[in-house]
Design a protein around this nucleic acid. Structure first.
Lengths: 225, 225
DNA sequence: CCTCGATCACCAGGATGCGCATGGGGGCGA
DNA sequence: TCGCCCCCATGCGCATCCTGGTGATCGAGG
């Protein structure tokens, strides 16, 4: 999988190249709009990541030129908060996406993978759902009955794992393996604490609890009958 | 379990249908790619077996079209093309497995079962059943005649062991070994107590008892005649 | 048929251990 | 440096499990 990064800021470009490289992508870099456009048309990329603000040119123009040539490579825009206008928003429908700086790298990676998968015709599961509890993996948002619930990163991972195994009992060992990446018993009550906190957020203010403890076994996220 | 076979060769398709039918699957057949695609989208199958070489169309295209519609039914490709890159192309296009002709039917059956198991939530051997009593090992839920029965951890282990040995007489020593992990005689009536409790829960409110005591030998969980 | 011994079922009290909540400290990024 | 998030430790409450005792049931032999 090849990715073209068009970004004038050396540090930002390096950061991207390093992170994406570690995730198994081959990354080419261009520092200016014209350079990027030239590389995009001569080489074949699976994805282009472009800054909005490039020396002397708007990143949007690069993409417009590309599209005129019949190139449909998906583009992910990076832009500062003030630069997000309607034109950029609209691109989302056309197979492209945008991300506001500053961003968490994990989120960028999620979107990159989503775009590449979408392009290659794969259906993407981006929203998990259990009863009235919903999790948007791309936006990293969780809502219950329509109201948003802010979660910490670890809480998010925990809930994601529980939702992916909804209806099943999830043991502590499973959680340690997949949420904490521990492959041993930490001999503490880390899990209890986070489950407790998560419960406060997703169950406390609602009538029917979704997160049940199965004594002697683990936990189970289940929709009420 | 329903399987769709997309295969133009009449003999090969018949061979598949016969073999799979004997293994308990319901098999539908399509002779061309378009036919197969139409059947796949209108009906719901647990697995699709597709030939790579179809009249006028590559089986790959059928799968790609299916995936674009958001259909994730697992697909097993059959092909005379044994090259590695062909295999990779098949898997990339959204196929889930690849089998090269000629093949042993036992191998095909093994792969079919693996794919179906994978799709159905990795639920392999998770439900034990004796008469109208059911135990879901993943969800840790027990139901009799549809109504849920809450069990304590030890009661759960006890019932699980009994259900795994349904119809056999289970001695006290066996229970101590496998349910309590005792390798000696505790000289108490722990077992009696728990069997009693379990009986209350699974037999008390029902007409025909399932858990019988075999005097001088042990216990036996058995469905009524 | 009756008696007696052995086995089994059930009940209730008590101790253990599990799970939950809260507050404080340490590490990491801003 | 500051703030945030994560982890750890303590104490509490309660469910769960075991223990001992008593009554019921079964089987065999007189």
């Amino acid at each position: 999988m090849r990715i073209l990064v068009i970004e004038d800021d050396e540090a930002a470009a390096g950061y991207l190249a390093k992170g994406l490289g570690e995730s198994g992508y081959v990354v080419d870099r261009a520092a200016t709009g014209p350079d990027g456009l030239a590389m995009a048309v001569t080489e074949s990329y699976d994805l282009i990541i472009a800054d909005r603000m490039l020396p002397g040119i708007d990143g949007l123009l690069v993409v417009e030129a590309l599209r005129k040539k019949g190139d449909n490579t998906p583009v992910l825009f990076l832009s500062a908060l003030g630069q997000v206008d309607e034109r950029v928003r609209g691109l989302k429908a056309g197979g492209d996406d945008y991300l506001v700086k500053p961003y968490a790298f994990a989120e960028l990676l999620a979107r990159v993978e989503a775009l590449i998968r979408r392009k290659s015709g794969r259906a993407e599961e981006t929203v998990l759902k259990v009863a009235d509890l919903e999790m948007d993996l791309l936006a990293r948002r969780v809502t219950r009955a329509g109201t948003e619930i802010p979660l910490q990163p670890r809480e998010f991972r925990l809930l994601e794992y529980l939702m992916r195994h909804a209806g099943q009992v999830v043991t502590r060992t499973m959680l340690l393996e997949h949420v904490w990446d521990y492959h041993f018993d930490p001999q503490t009550n880390v899990i209890d604490v986070h489950v407790s906190r998560l419960r406060q957020k997703i169950d406390k203010t609602f009538t029917s609890p979704l997160l049940h403890t199965v004594r002697g076994a683990g936990y189970c996220l289940r929709a009420p009958e």
